[in-house]
């Protein structure tokens, strides 16, 4: 028996999965890293959390986490949304690892729908939760056909969708899960992160791993890999921007959540990345928007 069988939870292996399963998943991860952006099929296990709620990300994390890791889990950019709490608790119970909300000190970050604002370093791994790994799924529902299209780079049909958007809306009408081309070959679905976060995937020093449990696929972007969002030369990819800045910390470059504060429809904008926002506030940054009476949060208060 090795040290990994010592666990916090009676009767379960370290991080819940048995060692055979972890080995199988790690082999899939290695294949994925060797072929950036390619979806590697893997035999997903039923986990104590439902399919669709992050089992892919959880299995990836469970396969690579070690006792000395420092784990951060976020959902919608925040550490304390219910599912992030639930997943963090799962690993605390089954692996006994230390957890943190600090982006920079975490060695392993599992995320749903956002990339942290703070740039990552080469000692970190970012694990994304993926609902639908296949970017061609909406155009080609058959798995047998989409596999061939990837192998042969028959991607004309993806640009047809973008062409149509420009024809009908005057711009590309995809705001999240915006398709990218990885390392000049595979077109990949980055998971439902807002397109605002796409540029962060490009040449990132951290290792980025993607797990889709229900759909049984794993893929990866190795560090310092080219990741380009699809577009046309004359209709280049653009990220979202806000006219407002964060009401709490004043940030103008982060992704902002829109919060409706009263029945009159008055709105405030607040950083989606809670830790990023708190750090800025600690450093003394403040928003320049008056926060109205009756609003539940004051600057400097933990959200």
């Amino acid at each position: 028996m090795n040290e990994n069988t010592l666990t916090s939870e009676e009767g379960y292996n370290f991080a819940y999965l048995d060692e055979q399963t972890k080995r199988m998943i790690r082999r899939s991860l290695l294949k994925a890293v060797a072929i950036p952006g390619y979806q590697v099929p893997f035999s997903s296990r039923e986990m104590p959390l439902p399919y669709g709620w992050g089992t892919g990300g959880i299995q990836v994390t469970a396969s690579i986490i070690g006792r000395d890791d420092l784990l951060k889990v976020i959902d919608q950019g925040a550490d304390d949304t219910t599912n992030a709490v639930s997943i963090r608790k799962f690993f605390a119970r089954t692996a006994g690892v230390e957890t943190t909300e600090e982006t920079t000190s975490a060695t392993l970050i599992q995320t749903r729908h956002r990339i942290p604002e703070k740039p990552l370093n080469e000692n970190q791994i970012l694990v994304y939760q993926v609902p639908i790994p296949e970017p061609l799924r909406w155009i080609e529902p058959r798995e047998t056909e989409s596999r061939k299209m990837h192998a042969l780079r028959e991607y004309g049909v993806m640009h047809v969708k973008l062409y149509e958007d420009i024809t009908h809306y005057g711009e590309i009408a995809t705001s999240y899960d915006y398709p990218v081309q990885v390392n000049g070959h595979y077109i990949m679905a980055p998971s439902p992160i807002p397109k605002f976060d796409n540029p962060k995937m490009h040449m990132n020093p951290a290792l980025q791993l993607f797990g889709a449990g229900r759909e049984q696929r794993i893929y990866a972007i190795p560090p310092f890999t080219e990741v380009i969002s699809l577009d046309f030369e004359d209709y280049p990819f653009r990220i979202q921007q806000w006219k407002d800045s964060c009401a709490l910390c004043g940030s103008k470059d982060s992704f902002l959540d829109e919060v409706v504060i009263n029945d009159k429809g008055e709105r405030l904008f607040i950083c989606s990345d809670t830790h990023f926002c708190q750090e800025r506030q600690k450093q003394g940054y403040r928003g320049d928007v008056p926060i109205p009476e009756g609003f539940g949060i004051k600057p400097g208060e933990k959200q």
Binding site: Q76, D177, P192, F196, F255, D257
Partner: peptide, 8 residues
């Protein structure tokens, strides 16, 4: 929560 994507 899907509010980040919905925001987009």
């Amino acid at each position: 929560p899907h509010y980040v994507d919905f925001q987009g």
